[in-house]
Design a protein around this nucleic acid. Structure first.
Lengths: 332, 332
DNA sequence: GTGAAAGCGCTAACAG
DNA sequence: CTGTTAGCGCTTTCAC
């Protein structure tokens, strides 16, 4: 496996320029003789050639690589988003570097630094906090597109779901089914996306002329354990709920586990709503409403914003992607 | 933001060596004067410094980056594996580059090339086929660790689950519950891992003195749709099953959907077993046995093998990681 | 049609 | 304790 252009040139007694021109498909343009082309092609055929990106990017100061920083990738939403975004980037010749912070703010800062050091051409980031976000924007001189969390205080391009409308729509669906109170189990009330969902929910209540009395239960952490604790608290204080909304799938998982543990089974008459969609929601016997986020459109929009920034056509849009309700009706 | 070491050196009227030594923490070792150190640190404090990895890797011919190629990352197992592996790599100072093939063999080859061009120090690969695997091993001169699929015909290090034992154990569990026939819905019978699971299952039947009569149903594709078609075929040919095993979660999802569609609900008396674990399996009212793969140990072992190869202590082990059964008993 | 050479930012070896 | 220099493989510019 011949390595460098120079080696090929030496082997063939040609100059690097000549070899480069045919390797980069500009043979015709510079009218390299057919014989020379053939010699070079034959050599590559037998020894191979793989361009050295490190050298290229050192020279050109670009890597054709973009970075993605998400909290974690075992979360289906982020996993799907990462996948779609990788596909979209690749379609335009970029390799996407997917990394996770594991909800560690320190780690997140380090990741940004690591990716910048690796000379990525741009960065997609789901920031954990406003402070993190500002840290990144200060540090990174390359294009940045923020995802999922609008802490505002910035003119950086951003893509998120239309959380307010989503919250309202989801609450609306389940309110139409008529059971009250409608609890809202919230994993992480600090996040702007979650706050918007809560506001949407509250507006739906208002439109239905329902007076809520502290039906929003907030806990610590957008996780299985968070949901478990929230549901146990709910059971203890108010008994079996008739209807509830979970702020995310992990929270729902925990909540369901608490129910199972309390009753020995999952009471099928509880109306359940959740943000994010997963085929396994079909495993529940209950009425289930889920609010699906459209990762395809996220990816498309996020890449479009990145492309603009890379092309030096600034733009500082915030794009809100609509969510879509999925309905699973209980039997009978 | 001062950029290069050389710039800092110029600004401060020092030489690059001096600056480098303090930047790389070797100030004490080379007894750089406290004053010089202070000047340099102050400069970095105010203007910042981020090492240029492209230049470093061009010089050292290493990138401190490892590549991971999996079929897709929206599959929980691979997502979790990727996450654990990223953590493990990072713990030893490597950045992991996670990429997906989307089950496209051409794409897989391109990815290998792309990562090699980007000069990764080593590659973790879940190969789609034997041909792919051999293609990669021929092309890649860097260390490779194979994952999940033992097409054999190689002496390359490999990590997989102990699929035979897992298949046997899972079948054993559900056979103890006593309902026959015990169907096996298989998404992708070509894969060596799946074949081993089938063999384990068959051995369990033998040990239970059960004579099976074509209870293994194979379809096309390890996917939701694959499972859906398999279950519909089963329903058509043999009516409602009493017990079945799904070869993976996507297959199970499809199978459950078919059941729901047929009966309007999921008959809770069907005994269900599946490979791979997910908290949402707890949403089912049925008896559910799942076989959990231990991603932590996968990550640990895979990195260990990689480390060995990077250190030039070859080794050509195949490591089989045990699986663990999770049992969810139906109420009452 | 082909060649020669500079330089991207870093590291390592050697020189004082 | 600090400075100088060559060179990693590529691209670009200019020269013949």
């Amino acid at each position: 496996m011949a390595k460098t252009v120079e080696q090929i040139a030496n082997d063939l007694n040609l100059s690097v320029t000549t070899v480069r021109l045919v390797l980069s498909g500009k043979a015709e343009q510079y009218r390299i003789s057919a014989k020379t082309q053939a010699r070079i092609n034959a050599h590559v055929e037998s020894y191979g050639y793989i361009l050295n990106h490190s050298a290229r990017s050192l020279k050109l100061n670009k890597t054709d690589t973009l970075g993605l920083i998400v909290p974690n990738i075992s979360n289906v939403f982020f996993a799907t988003l990462a996948e779609k975004l990788e596909l979209r980037c690749r379609r335009s010749g970029y390799q996407l570097m997917i990394t996770c912070t594991y909800d560690d703010v320190e780690y997140e800062n380090k990741l940004v630094k690591s990716l910048v050091a690796r000379n990525v051409d741009g960065l997609f980031i789901v920031p954990a906090t406003l402070e993190n976000q500002q840290h990144h924007l200060r540090l990174v001189k390359k294009p940045v597109v923020l995802l999922d969390r609008d802490f505002s205080a910035t003119t950086t391009p951003l893509v998120e779901s239309h959380n307010y409308a989503g919250g309202e729509m989801l609450a609306d669906c389940i309110l139409n089914a008529g059971q009250l109170p409608l609890w809202f189990l919230v994993g992480d009330p600090q996040l702007p996306s979650i706050r918007e969902r809560i506001e949407g929910y509250q507006n739906a209540l208002k439109k239905h002329n329902v007076v809520a009395n502290n039906w929003v239960l907030t806990g610590s952490g957008n996780s299985h354990d968070g949901g478990y604790l929230l549901m146990n608290q709910l059971l203890k204080d108010h008994g079996k709920p008739h209807a509830f909304i979970a702020s995310s799938l992990p929270v729902l998982e925990g909540a369901i586990e608490a129910l199972r543990q309390q009753f020995g089974f999952i009471p099928a008459d509880i109306n359940i709503a959740t943000f994010d969609e997963h085929p396994m929601l079909g495993f529940l016997a209950n009425n289930v409403w889920s609010m699906q986020q459209d990762e395809d459109r996220w990816a498309e929009n996020a890449f479009e914003l990145m492309q603009q920034a890379l092309d030096d056509r600034p733009g500082c849009e915030t794009i809100k992607v609509p969510m879509k309700p999925i309905i699973r009706k209980r039997h009978g």
